[in-house]
Write a protein that binds this DNA or RNA. Structure first.
Lengths: 223, 223
DNA sequence: GATTTTGATGGACGATTGTCCATTTTTCAT
DNA sequence: ATGAAAAATGGACAATCGTCCATCAAAATC
């Protein structure tokens, strides 16, 4: 038994964090006031100061929580993927574009915190999950791919492919932010794999999609 | 002569807009208050209500102004480019990554407004310049490229290339936002062209960069 | 130069912000 | 059951928010 004392304590902490994220998602960060938060959490005004020492710390904790949630979701998906590097890349891309990860709520929260990130470095760190763990996951996979392929300047190629893939994913998120209704997950994934299959034709195929110019440009087989 | 009346009027309007952008860039949107704005502009408190009817309208006008500035800068650069579609693409990419366009101030402002875009659609429109004019410019260029190359499903390929290039640029901007000191413009451009040259090997070359895996994967010339 | 017109001023105003603490309620240990 | 300890409450508080207007200054018109 965890003790009803501590159990309630933790429960209320989570309720506050959840209330912040709900409010940020729905009303934006500028309208997320203490009054708004405690009303959503159904708790009393003093709780924020009691548990977090102030609103700023609570918001920071919420940013941290949101970041962890994003990453946990992605890691869970990755564990269902196969061992081959191309399978892992594919899972990351499709996972990052999946409904569970890329949805209105998450995007609102993510970009709201990003908007404040320049002026609050504590929050900036949590907007930057991509640069830490996610980058490592993708880079590992591309490193194996270029090693298999015997590409010259393997490390540079793997680094560029990682950087480019992350940039593409970021761009798709922005697309979703600005046009959530007209956004098409399949199209976003197809475009990314189109770029990847152009760079690594031996490792990524378009699966029914139209072939790329790069493939078309191959010289005819020797007669 | 424009009349000293109207001349001063317009001058003060611009001062207010400039003060908003300075404040947003330096302190963030949440700390951009009426007091902060009028102090920076060196004007009196009532000016905001007089010229814009309220703070919200002023902020919106500032977002609009910033967006126009971004686009004007890019269009000016584009006029110095040649006529070939690949030259135009190259100019857009390099322009969008150039110091004049991609710098700390602009990125701060851009993402600050983006963070509020979900809850204030008037601002969202101005965060979305990319989807309008810029998209058209890029799409035109890729359309010519795929037409020349005789690619099957030309329109789909041009659309995907446009979407992908925009996503890559967006991603690079995010990169800059989160790591302004370690960001490398040359590297960002190289990665984008690496993707593009993989998709359109006949139109984009790496110019001294290491060749891509796609090129390596070409079968040896017929003996 | 007098009068009208318009722009500019800065303080008053009520509403709302986040912080903090005296008090009450609940849980734990005895 | 009783006392100690911890958690939760909700209102007081000063500070700040954005709006608005009575007043003043200056430019344009006569």
């Amino acid at each position: 038994m965890a003790g009803k004392r501590e159990q309630n304590r933790e429960q209320n902490r989570q309720a506050l964090i959840g209330a912040v994220l709900d409010s940020v998602a729905e009303k934006g960060i500028s309208e997320t006031s203490v009054s708004e938060i405690i009303q959503r959490a159904g708790l009393s005004r003093g709780m924020i100061h009691l548990h977090f020492g102030g609103k700023d710390n609570l918001v920071q904790a919420a940013a941290h929580h949101s970041s962890e949630e994003y990453y946990d979701e992605l890691e869970a998906l990755l564990q269902t993927a196969g061992d081959s590097p191309q399978e892992r890349i594919e899972m990351i891309v499709r996972g990052d574009l999946s409904e569970r990860v890329l949805n209105r709520r998450n995007v609102s929260i993510w970009y709201a915190f990003r908007g404040e990130s320049r002026n609050r470095k504590a929050i900036a760190e949590h907007s930057d999950t991509r640069d830490g763990r996610l980058r490592g996951m993708i880079h590992n996979a591309f490193s194996r791919i270029v090693r298999e392929a015997g590409t010259p300047d393997a490390s540079g190629t793997a680094r560029d492919a990682t950087h480019g893939t992350l940039a593409l994913l970021e761009g798709m998120w922005t697309d979703f932010l600005l046009h959530p209704d007209r956004f098409d997950r399949e199209e976003a994934a197809r475009i990314i794999f189109r770029f990847l299959s152009a760079m690594f034709p031996a490792h990524f195929s378009l699966k029914g999609a139209v072939r790329t110019t790069a493939e078309e440009a191959l010289p005819p087989p020797c007669a």
